[in-house]
Each structure stands twice: as structure tokens, then as C-alpha cells.
């Protein structure tokens, strides 16, 4: 099968890779680029655990043709921490025990990060809406919602 060269920016770094025709972004990022933070849950766009940001918008890696990200900005959980300093979302997920098995966490973090980028002061309902495409089997969602609300507050520089 012929391969297509594509170039994009992954977490701020220029990245070039040869992809198979029809390959999806999830496969390419995990297998060819080696970014294992996004997970393969269902492969059909229903679980949300492969969520990545493309030009700031949340997209499902498993439903995105890799060739369509040519020239675009991609963000994954790998780009969240600043060296050893965790992003407030990561820190508050940890403090709220918002992960048990952790499989949904990368997708949740990406969905939350996209929400907070466009809406720094979301209501509880808006947080619920933002993660409604992400399935969590362990936590019952409540600690995840709490963590996102607290991270929003922390990012706005307010005490909570």
C-alpha cells in the first residue's frame, strides 16, 4: 500500500510521518508517532477515550482520517504538563480521585481542556455537556465533574 507523507504540529512540535491511505489519527499517533496517551476504546466514536484537540477543537482520533490533519495543530495529554509541573486539570483529577482504572482519563482531560479554553467559567451543566461523549465505567462521573469545576476555578486564579 502506498504511503502519504503528512506534517502537523503535535503538542507544539513539528511532526512528520508516512501514513497508510485510510489510516485513522488514533492508529497513526499511537503506532507511528508513539504517543500512547490516547486510548483505543471502541474504534467507532462512541466512548471518547481517543479524544484529541485539532486546532483547539475536540475530535475523536478513531474517526479522523490521518491525512486530514496536514498542517494542523494537534494536542494530546502528553502536552499538558509543563515539565514536572502538572496542568491544574491533571492535578485536580488526582486530588479528586477522578480516575480508577484510568482508561477514560486522557479523553476526559482533552474534553475538559477544550471546554476550559473556550469557556473559563462553565456551569455544572456545561461541564456535564462537555464530557457527555466520554464514557467512564468506574467513578460514577461525580469526581470528574468536581475536578473540572475546581480546575476552572484554579485557572481563573480564584481560591476554591
Amino acid at each position: 500500500m502506498s504511503k502519504t507523507p503528512i506534517q502537523f504540529t503535535l503538542n507544539g512540535k513539528p511532526t512528520s510521518v508516512f501514513v497508510n491511505g485510510g489510516a485513522n489519527l488514533l492508529e497513526v499517533l499511537r503506532r507511528d508517532v508513539g504517543d500512547m496517551t490516547l486510548k483505543y476504546g471502541c474504534g467507532q466514536g462512541t466512548c471518547g477515550t481517543c479524544t484529541v484537540l485539532i486546532d483547539g477543537e475536540p475530535h475523536l482520533g478513531c474517526l479522523t482520517l490521518a491525512e486530514t490533519v496536514e498542517g494542523r495543530q494537534i494536542e494530546t495529554v502528553n502536552g499538558m504538563a509543563d515539565g514536572p509541573e502538572l496542568h491544574p486539570l491533571q492535578k485536580l483529577f488526582m486530588e479528586n480521585f477522578a480516575a480508577q482504572c484510568g482508561f477514560c482519563t486522557p479523553g476526559m482531560l482533552m474534553a475538559a481542556s477544550s471546554l476550559l479554553n473556550r469557556n473559563p467559567n462553565p456551569s455544572r451543566e456545561e461541564v456535564v455537556e462537555a464530557i457527555s461523549g466520554n464514557i467512564c465505567r468506574c467513578t460514577g462521573y461525580e469526581p470528574i465533574i468536581d475536578a473540572i469545576l475546581q480546575a476552572a476555578s484554579s485557572l481563573r486564579g480564584r481560591a476554591f
Binding site: 480521585f97 480508577q100 465505567r137 468506574c138 467513578t139 460514577g140 462521573y141 461525580e142 469526581p143
Partner: peptide
């Protein structure tokens, strides 16, 4: 506590 809350949801 978290296991009990998540488990009750399930």
C-alpha cells in the same frame, strides 16, 4: 469512598 461511590453508580 471513591470505590463505593463509583460502584453504587454501577
Amino acid at each position: 469512598e471513591q470505590q463505593l461511590i463509583g460502584g453504587a453508580w454501577m
